[in-house]
Deep mutational scan, measured.
Amino acid sequence: RKWEEIAERLREEFNINPEEAREAVEKAGGNEEEARRIVKKRL
């Protein structure tokens, strides 16, 4: 699934746990840019 690939990239890029990465992607509706913004806000 594409969402899992996005979550994996976010996890590696921001050094967050898989659960946090998945939550961000879900919140963003699968949009990678939006997920990235969500993760950055949390850091």
Rank of each mutant, 00 (worst) to 15 (best):
Arg1Gly: 07
Arg1Lys: 15
Arg1Val: 13
Arg1Tyr: 13
Arg1Leu: 15
Arg1Ser: 10
Lys2His: 00
Lys2Asp: 14
Lys2Ser: 13
Lys2Cys: 04
Lys2Met: 15
Lys2Leu: 08
Lys2Gly: 07
Lys2Ala: 12
Lys2Arg: 12
Lys2Val: 10
Lys2Phe: 11
Trp3Phe: 15
Trp3Ser: 15
Trp3Cys: 00
Trp3Tyr: 03
Trp3Ile: 15
Trp3His: 07
Trp3Lys: 14
Trp3Glu: 07
Trp3Asp: 04
Glu4Val: 04
Glu4Trp: 02
Glu4Gly: 02
Glu4Cys: 02
Glu4Ile: 07
Glu4Ser: 07
Glu4Asn: 14
Glu4Gln: 11
Glu5Cys: 08
Glu5Thr: 14
Glu5Asn: 10
Glu5Gln: 10
Glu5Ala: 12
Glu5Lys: 11
Glu5Ile: 11
Glu5Trp: 05
Ile6Arg: 05
Ile6Asp: 02
Ile6Tyr: 03
Ile6Ala: 12
Ile6Val: 09
Ile6Glu: 08
Ala7Arg: 05
Ala7Asp: 07
Ala7Asn: 03
Ala7Gly: 07
Ala7Cys: 04
Ala7Ser: 09
Ala7Leu: 06
Ala7Lys: 07
Ala7Thr: 12
Glu8Met: 14
Glu8Gln: 13
Glu8Ala: 11
Glu8His: 07
Glu8Asn: 05
Glu8Gly: 13
Glu8Leu: 11
Glu8Asp: 08
Glu8Pro: 04
Arg9Trp: 04
Arg9Ser: 10
Arg9Ile: 15
Arg9Phe: 04
Arg9His: 11
Arg9Gln: 14
Arg9Thr: 09
Arg9Met: 14
Arg9Ala: 13
Arg9Leu: 13
Arg9Pro: 02
Arg9Lys: 15
Arg9Glu: 09
Leu10Asp: 00
Leu10Trp: 01
Leu10Ala: 01
Leu10Gly: 00
Leu10Phe: 01
Leu10Glu: 00
Leu10Met: 13
Leu10Val: 08
Arg11Gln: 15
Arg11Trp: 05
Arg11Ala: 06
Arg11Glu: 09
Arg11Asn: 04
Arg11Cys: 01
Arg11Asp: 06
Glu12Leu: 11
Glu12Pro: 03
Glu12Thr: 09
Glu12Tyr: 01
Glu12Trp: 03
Glu12Lys: 02
Glu12Val: 07
Glu12His: 03
Glu12Ile: 10
Glu13Val: 04
Glu13Cys: 11
Glu13Asp: 10
Glu13Thr: 09
Glu13Asn: 10
Glu13Trp: 02
Glu13Ser: 13
Glu13Pro: 00
Phe14Thr: 11
Phe14Ala: 07
Phe14Gly: 03
Phe14Trp: 12
Phe14Ile: 03
Phe14Glu: 10
Phe14Val: 03
Phe14Lys: 01
Phe14Asn: 11
Phe14Gln: 05
Asn15Ile: 09
Asn15Trp: 03
Asn15Thr: 13
Asn15Phe: 10
Asn15Ser: 13
Asn15Arg: 13
Asn15Asp: 07
Asn15Met: 11
Asn15Leu: 14
Asn15Tyr: 01
Ile16Cys: 13
Ile16Arg: 01
Ile16Phe: 02
Ile16Gly: 02
Ile16Met: 15
Ile16Trp: 02
Ile16Asp: 01
Ile16Leu: 13
Ile16His: 00
Ile16Gln: 03
Ile16Lys: 00
Ile16Ser: 05
Ile16Glu: 02
Asn17Ser: 12
Asn17Lys: 03
Asn17Tyr: 03
Asn17Gly: 12
Asn17Val: 12
Asn17Arg: 09
Asn17Thr: 05
Asn17Glu: 03
Asn17Trp: 01
Asn17Ala: 15
Pro18Gln: 14
Pro18Glu: 14
Pro18Ser: 14
Pro18His: 07
Pro18Gly: 15
Pro18Cys: 06
Pro18Val: 15
Pro18Thr: 03
Pro18Arg: 13
Glu19Phe: 01
Glu19Lys: 09
Glu19Cys: 06
Glu19Asp: 01
Glu19Ile: 06
Glu19Asn: 11
Glu19Thr: 15
Glu19Trp: 05
Glu19Gly: 15
Glu20Val: 08
Glu20Lys: 05
Glu20Ser: 07
Glu20Asn: 07
Glu20Trp: 09
Glu20Arg: 12
Glu20Thr: 10
Glu20Phe: 01
Glu20His: 09
Ala21Trp: 00
Ala21Tyr: 01
Ala21Gly: 06
Ala21His: 01
Ala21Thr: 04
Ala21Leu: 06
Ala21Met: 03
Ala21Lys: 00
Ala21Glu: 00
Arg22Ser: 02
Arg22Glu: 15
Arg22Lys: 02
Arg22Asn: 08
Arg22Leu: 09
Arg22Asp: 10
Arg22His: 15
Arg22Thr: 09
Arg22Met: 11
Glu23Lys: 08
Glu23Leu: 09
Glu23Pro: 02
Glu23His: 07
Glu23Gln: 09
Glu23Ile: 06
Glu23Arg: 09
Glu23Gly: 13
Ala24Met: 11
Ala24Lys: 00
Ala24Asp: 06
Ala24Pro: 01
Ala24Trp: 04
Ala24Val: 13
Ala24Ile: 04
Val25Leu: 08
Val25Ile: 02
Val25Ala: 12
Val25Trp: 03
Val25Glu: 01
Val25Asn: 01
Val25Gln: 00
Val25Cys: 09
Val25Tyr: 02
Val25Asp: 00
Val25Pro: 00
Glu26Thr: 04
Glu26Met: 06
Glu26Ser: 06
Glu26Arg: 07
Glu26His: 06
Glu26Phe: 02
Glu26Asp: 14
Glu26Cys: 04
Glu26Pro: 00
Lys27Ile: 01
Lys27Leu: 07
Lys27His: 04
Lys27Ala: 06
Lys27Val: 11
Lys27Gln: 14
Lys27Pro: 01
Lys27Trp: 03
Lys27Gly: 12
Ala28Thr: 14
Ala28Leu: 01
Ala28Gln: 02
Ala28Glu: 02
Ala28Arg: 01
Ala28His: 01
Ala28Pro: 00
Ala28Phe: 01
Gly29Ile: 13
Gly29Val: 09
Gly29Pro: 01
Gly29Arg: 11
Gly29Leu: 05
Gly29His: 14
Gly29Gln: 10
Gly30Val: 02
Gly30Arg: 05
Gly30Asn: 03
Gly30His: 02
Gly30Phe: 02
Gly30Asp: 07
Gly30Leu: 04
Gly30Pro: 02
Gly30Ser: 04
Asn31Ala: 14
Asn31Tyr: 05
Asn31Ile: 04
Asn31Gln: 07
Asn31Cys: 12
Asn31Ser: 11
Asn31Leu: 10
Glu32Asn: 06
Glu32Ile: 08
Glu32Asp: 12
Glu32Gln: 03
Glu32Val: 10
Glu32Met: 14
Glu32Lys: 09
Glu33Val: 06
Glu33Met: 08
Glu33His: 02
Glu33Lys: 02
Glu33Ile: 03
Glu33Trp: 04
Glu33Tyr: 03
Glu33Ala: 10
Glu33Asn: 01
Glu34Cys: 05
Glu34Tyr: 05
Glu34Pro: 01
Glu34Thr: 13
Glu34Ile: 02
Glu34His: 15
Glu34Asn: 05
Glu34Lys: 09
Glu34Asp: 08
Glu34Met: 06
Glu34Leu: 05
Ala35Tyr: 00
Ala35Leu: 00
Ala35Asp: 00
Ala35Ser: 08
Ala35His: 00
Ala35Thr: 02
Ala35Trp: 00
Ala35Gln: 00
Ala35Glu: 00
Ala35Gly: 04
Arg36Phe: 08
Arg36His: 15
Arg36Leu: 07
Arg36Cys: 04
Arg36Gln: 13
Arg36Gly: 09
Arg36Asp: 02
Arg36Ile: 09
Arg36Thr: 11
Arg37His: 09
Arg37Ile: 05
Arg37Tyr: 10
Arg37Cys: 14
Arg37Gln: 05
Arg37Trp: 06
Arg37Pro: 01
Arg37Ser: 09
Arg37Asp: 08
Ile38Tyr: 04
Ile38Ser: 09
Ile38Leu: 12
Ile38Lys: 12
Ile38Arg: 11
Ile38Val: 13
Ile38His: 11
Ile38Cys: 08
Ile38Thr: 14
Ile38Ala: 09
Val39Arg: 01
Val39Gly: 02
Val39Trp: 05
Val39Glu: 05
Val39Phe: 04
Val39Tyr: 02
Val39His: 01
Val39Ser: 07
Val39Met: 09
Val39Gln: 07
Val39Pro: 00
Val39Asp: 00
Val39Lys: 00
Val39Thr: 08
Lys40Thr: 12
Lys40Pro: 15
Lys40Ile: 13
Lys40Gly: 12
Lys40Trp: 03
Lys40Asn: 04
Lys40Asp: 13
Lys40His: 07
Lys40Arg: 13
Lys40Met: 03
Lys41Arg: 13
Lys41Ala: 13
Lys41Gln: 11
Lys41Met: 15
Lys41Cys: 12
Lys41Trp: 06
Arg42Thr: 11
Arg42His: 15
Arg42Ala: 12
Arg42Ser: 08
Arg42Cys: 08
Arg42Glu: 15
Arg42Met: 11
Arg42Pro: 15
Arg42Gly: 13
Arg42Asp: 04
Arg42Val: 10
Arg42Gln: 07
Leu43Ser: 09
Leu43Thr: 02
Leu43Tyr: 04
Leu43Gly: 15
Leu43Lys: 03
Leu43Trp: 10
